[in-house]
């Protein structure tokens, strides 16, 4: 992708002279990441039929999430005090944020495999930061279909929910999904670091990542007791979709939190990202490698 001429086809014995100029440090790093991404795209193109299957399969999972919400509204007119149109705004925010974070960062859940196969060692001896390398080397482009579907649900839901648009709400409808992406990305990274300490943690991380996706697909009023307290505010999932949706819809929080809480989403996302960065740094120092 970076320089298709030299990357594909037989490389020229002598490279064009413009390549000779010593690139600045920053652009050099970006060039390296761009090259990694290009390699990943070409690797996946080697399996064309599987790629199409994956593309369809991935969108299917998100479609069923939305279908589930529709089925639930088939037997009830309100879910946790929210109508179908209102609930779909929550679903849209959650689906888009999760799908995008899953596309960009989700494959970090394969960290135990990277450790077992030694890929993690290989990544550590290269002159680039480990996390971006892993993400770019294994970027699951097939998950793009899911992002597109999530975005479609989000756009359809906010345009049909009868939102009274103000400048602030327009800003929020743009910022909140992005904050959700950052938040879910942070959750993916933080939970993956468990495998630095416990390599056989298996699907444990799923309970927070995929559990968080399901949690954020419904109004938090649906849940009860300490479970709600833990997921919504202990881990911060209420700020992905529930509070931004309340602010967009202009509804008061049945649980009594003030209206501005919906605008706190970006701040919460940044805090989560900082925690993730810290967890990753500490985790890498505890890394024990495997094998011989």
């Amino acid at each position: 992708m970076a320089e298709p001429g030299t990357l594909t086809g037989p490389a020229p014995a002598v490279a064009p002279p413009e390549d000779e100029r010593p690139a600045g440090r920053r652009s050099g790093v970006l060039g390296a990441y761009r090259a990694l991404l290009g390699a990943q795209a070409r690797s996946q193109a080697a399996y064309r039929t599987s790629f199409v299957v994956d593309l369809v399969g991935n969108v299917g999972a998100t479609v069923f999430d939305v279908v589930t919400v529709l089925v639930l509204f088939g037997v009830t007119r309100e879910l946790g005090g929210f109508t179908l149109h209102e609930a779909l705004v929550i679903v849209g925010l959650s689906s888009f944020a999760f799908a995008t974070a899953d596309l960009l960062v989700g494959n970090i859940e394969r960290l135990p495999r990277y450790v077992r196969t030694g890929l993690f060692d290989a990544v550590l001896v290269r002159p680039l930061a480990a996390l971006p390398q892993l993400l770019l080397m294994d970027l699951p482009l097939r998950k793009v279909s899911r992002v597109v579907f999530g975005l479609a649900v989000l756009v359809a839901s906010v345009t049909s929910a009868g939102i009274h648009w103000t400048a602030g709400r327009v800003a929020l409808v743009l910022v909140a999904p992005l904050a959700g992406v950052v938040f879910f990305g942070a959750i993916f990274v933080t939970t993956s670091t468990v495998s630095f300490y416990w390599i056989d943690s298996g699907e444990l991380a799923n309970s927070v990542t995929y559990g968080g996706r399901d949690f954020t697909s419904y109004p938090v009023t649906v849940y009860g007791g300490w479970f709600r307290a833990l997921f919504a505010y202990g881990m911060g999932f209420a700020f992905v979709s529930y509070h931004p949706a309340l602010a967009l819809l202009g509804r008061a929080d049945p649980l009594g939190l003030p209206g501005w809480v919906g605008w706190a989403a970006p701040g919460v996302a940044l805090v989560a990202a900082a925690i993730a960065a810290l967890a990753w740094r500490v985790g890498i120092r505890h890394y024990r490698s495997t094998g011989s």
């Binding site: 639930l72 037997v75 009830t76 879910l79 946790g80 559990g211 399901d214 949690f215 419904y218 649906v222 849940y223 009860g224 479970f227 709600r228």
Partner: peptide
């Protein structure tokens, strides 16, 4: 927990 609360809401 997730499914219990969601079904209950339904």
């Amino acid at each position: 927990f997730l499914r219990y609360y969601i079904f209950l809401a339904a």
